[in-house]
């Protein structure tokens, strides 16, 4: 059997996905047995022109991580789509926009002003902002265009599979790679993970009916062991988050922040968590309710930490 050809690429991301890919450890050898890695900027010195030269659909599968923040990333996403038979959104940024996607609360101008002018550590007397092109004595210099909004990979090109997580757990990565190697991929569109149910299904903590009188941040309390963190007032999003990760965070007394994205069939993860949370606030007194929810730190960042660009609202409307 001919070896598979696999490409891996990074767009707007932190590099954590590459670490996660390496974290499969000795299984990398199994991957290497079954597949040639034809493009992987983090590890292999290949140029864009090398990819450009590949015939269409000559790559069997592309694992694409990172969101689409600028024109270079969009260009690469489109090119890799053309060259690959299977396009896999790897990790939360490619899947839902993730942390880079929180920038959708602002537009390009606001981000540039903040980053290149306002921050205290910046010394930019001439208020110089990035330009897509600039003439210097040596000729023209170009930069990719920074977009107003962050998009997910699916909002940019056709995506066949999703491997969720920020970053994906080792076992989730291998679940997908193994299926790829063995030619047993699920139907197109599948979000590949060990569990279609919420994290609670993986989580061994004891749960009862929920009634929340006070919301805590992680550093406010030392939670009781073995009891559902949400019941204790920590904003554990396991109830609204796809399982399959094995619930490592709640088991380490850290509330789930929702990185595996929505449960199968859910359209807006943040809205679903918000709606569920609103249902279990234990008060009928409007003032007390207000006091309780005032303790929620950074609502958008809490509820939409990973999913803002993929949510119904996609971001803030800036006028």
């Amino acid at each position: 059997m001919a070896k598979l050809k696999v490409a891996l690429y990074w767009a707007a991301s932190c590099g954590g996905c590459e670490i996660a890919q390496l974290a499969i450890g000795d299984k990398l050898l199994k991957l290497a047995e079954a597949a040639d890695i034809v493009f992987w900027p983090v590890a292999i010195d290949a140029k864009y022109k090398d990819v450009e030269a590949m015939p269409d659909k000559s790559i069997d599968a592309c694992l694409f991580n990172g969101a689409i923040r600028n024109s270079e990333q969009e260009h690469m996403a489109k090119m890799l789509r053309e060259k690959s038979k299977i396009m896999i959104a790897y990790g939360s940024c490619a899947y839902e926009g993730c942390i880079p996607g929180l920038a959708n609360l602002f537009n390009r101008q606001m981000i540039f002003e903040r980053v290149y002018i306002e921050t205290q550590s910046t010394d930019n007397k001439n208020n110089i902002l990035p330009q897509t092109s600039c003439q210097v004595p040596e000729g023209e210099l170009t930069l990719p265009e920074f977009y107003d909004t962050v998009k997910t990979l699916r909002q940019t090109v056709d995506v066949d599979y999703v491997i969720p997580g920020c970053p994906p757990e080792e076992k989730t990565t291998w679940l997908a790679l193994e299926a790829l190697i063995e030619g047993k991929l699920p139907p197109k569109g599948t979000v590949i993970s060990h569990n279609a149910k919420a994290v609670c299904d993986d989580c061994p903590l004891k749960r009862d009916v929920k009634k929340i009188k006070k919301i805590y941040r992680n550093f406010n309390i030392i939670p009781e062991p073995e009891i559902c963190l949400l019941e204790q007032g920590l904003l554990c999003q396991g109830i609204a988050t796809r399982g399959g990760c094995g619930a490592p965070c709640p088991q380490a007394n850290m509330p789930c922040t929702g990185c595996y994205g929505p449960v199968e069939g859910v359209i807006d993860q943040g809205a679903h968590f918000l709606s569920a949370l609103a249902s279990v606030i234990d008060s009928n007194d409007p003032e007390e309710i207000q006091r309780i929810i005032d303790d929620i730190p950074d609502p958008v960042g809490s509820f939409y930490r990973y999913s803002l660009p993929d949510s119904l609202l996609r971001g803030a409307i800036i006028r």
Binding site: A196, K197, D201, I239, G243, S279
Partner: peptide
């Protein structure tokens, strides 16, 4: 039942 994770959010509501 294929989707319910048994989080019990709905039970009291």
């Amino acid at each position: 039942e294929e989707l319910c994770s048994g989080c019990k959010i709905c039970n009291l509501l």
